[in-house]
Write a protein that binds this DNA or RNA. Structure first.
Length: 211
DNA sequence: AGCCAGGCTACCG
DNA sequence: CGGTAGCATGGC
């Protein structure tokens, strides 16, 4: 199955997803179907960066609790993250797990954000931040900075394996390039496509891909 | 009661 | 290079 056909199939199953949820700019849980201009503000973009770190190997429901705690404590900018002590941040984000690791990672991405917000962010540069691997980097570039890079996650790998297009241990970059070389480089398309993989994977409905 | 969550680093052979 | 332990917590 081609990337285009797979996208159409997923969209027919689940429709518009409205990713990435940006609660500081969109009421409710932050999803904004068919609105592709968000986040617009510096705070909104940094919220996406924090969420990308916090959701590593963690259910989004837990990330929402951690973000709520940070916002209630008015820790919603990279500057606030940097000047808050580690113990305080670790306690606030504890619902999302890996509290000590993710506290360091949040400080690392905060410094990167301050240094790079006004530039055109570079993927290689972002990948040098400790705590930012390929999926996190691509999520930040695609959803915070609107750059057309494709996000690969475990659900994407499982889906492609279920369809027998690639096996599960195919390298990240191979999969990323397969999508990017066979689709138009469209930010809204890439945003929705990845969101649809997550929806399919969360519901474990891989069988729905077959006739 | 395990297994799983929208992974990453460090370290191993 | 590819493989894996450790990292924390809550829902199902």
């Amino acid at each position: 199955m081609s990337p285009v056909k797979l996208y159409k199939k997923l969209f027919s199953l689940y429709g518009a997803q409205g990713w990435w949820p940006v609660r500081s700019e969109f009421k409710g849980r932050g999803y904004h179907p068919n609105v592709f201009g968000l986040p617009k503000t510096r705070k909104g973009k940094f919220e996406v960066c924090m969420g990308a770190i916090l959701t590593q190997n963690t259910a989004w429901t837990q990330v929402e609790k951690a973000l709520t705690n940070l916002f209630n404590a008015k820790i919603n900018t990279p500057e606030k993250i940097l000047k808050t002590d580690n113990e305080t941040i670790a306690t606030l984000i504890s619902p999302a797990g890996y509290r000590n690791q993710k506290t360091k990672y949040l400080k690392n991405i905060a410094q990167w954000f301050i240094d790079n917000y006004r530039k055109e962010p570079s993927r290689d540069n972002l990948l040098q931040v400790k705590g930012v691997g390929r999926e996190t980097a691509d999520s930040i570039l695609l959803y915070a900075f609107h750059l057309p890079t494709f996000v690969i996650d475990t659900y994407t790998k499982r889906t492609l394996a279920a369809l027998k297009i690639f096996d599960e241990k195919t390298p990240y970059e191979t999969l990323r390039l397969w999508f990017m070389e066979n689709l138009e480089l469209s930010v809204p398309l890439f945003q929705e496509y990845h969101a649809l993989f997550v929806e399919l994977g969360k519901n474990r409905e891989y069988s729905k891909l077959f006739p």
